[in-house]
Amino acid sequence: MEFLPPLLTLALVQVLAVVSPGQSFLVISKLALSAGRAAALSASIGMGLGSIVWATAAMVGLAVALKNDQWLYAALKFCGGGYLGYLAASHWRHAHDTSLGETRETGNVTLSRAFLQGFLTQLANPKVVIFFGSIFFAFIPPHAPTWVSLVCLIIVFFNETLWYSIVAFAFSIRKSQNFYYRAKTWMDRMMALILGAISLKLILDALRIAIGSFEG
């Protein structure tokens, strides 16, 4: 039970980060509109696997450093809080933006090509790199057992694949697309408020850890 709260928090924060419209959202929505639902779903799976690559790299590269370095742990929490604050501000600032850019027919896109496009899009997405480089370990304690890391990878894959699959279904239906345009403003602002609250908590936690290490 010790690791349930941080895992649930990680899942929530990642969902909020994933659903923020960006490069990956644009790719899936365009594929759904121009190449069909199957191609967009294939790309969604590719994005899920691409996220696992970044999550695994983060765990392998940072686990040793975080184990005995409270200052680094506090710094990552602080950076994570700052990044969430940035996301919150971005959600709020662009709440009225409804443009998906130009959509155009792409011809017959094979499922393998769509999968590769999704996978490479995720690998090249700066938001994903920053997320797993700072937010990921802001929630999971450095002494967490191996099974917690495996659960994290499952959460990452599930959230990414499920959300972009939903986008694929939604943007292959014109009525759903129109609903998104109408509801986007209040949805984005609600996400901004939630992200802002979590951002503040992370920053305060980081300051507490840093002060405790300094006093110790």
Rank of each mutant, 00 (worst) to 15 (best):
S199F: 06
V151Y: 05
V18H: 02
R113D: 09
L120F: 11
I45H: 04
G133P: 04
A43V: 00
M187V: 08
A38I: 10
M47G: 00
V18G: 02
T98C: 12
Y83C: 09
N178G: 12
G81R: 00
T161L: 07
H96N: 15
M59G: 14
F25Q: 03
T146L: 14
L8Y: 01
T185A: 11
A35L: 03
V13N: 05
I194N: 05
S134L: 13
W71V: 15
D97W: 14
G212T: 15
K77F: 02
F25N: 03
Q14P: 01
S134F: 11
S90E: 08
L12F: 02
L150H: 13
W147M: 12
T56R: 10
A55C: 02
E215Q: 14
L72G: 01
L16A: 03
G101V: 02
W54A: 06
S134N: 10
V109M: 06
M187W: 06
I211C: 14
F137A: 13
L116W: 11
L62D: 08
L8E: 01
N159I: 13
V167A: 03
P126H: 05
G46K: 01
T106L: 13
N125I: 03
T56M: 14
F139G: 00
T98L: 12
F119N: 07
G81N: 04
I166V: 14
A88G: 06
I166T: 13
A114F: 02
G216D: 10
S24R: 14
C79H: 09
F115R: 08
P142Q: 08
H96K: 15
G82K: 04
A206G: 00
I173F: 15
A210F: 09
V15Q: 08
M47A: 00
P5E: 01
V128P: 00
L193Y: 10
Q177C: 11
L76T: 03
A40S: 06
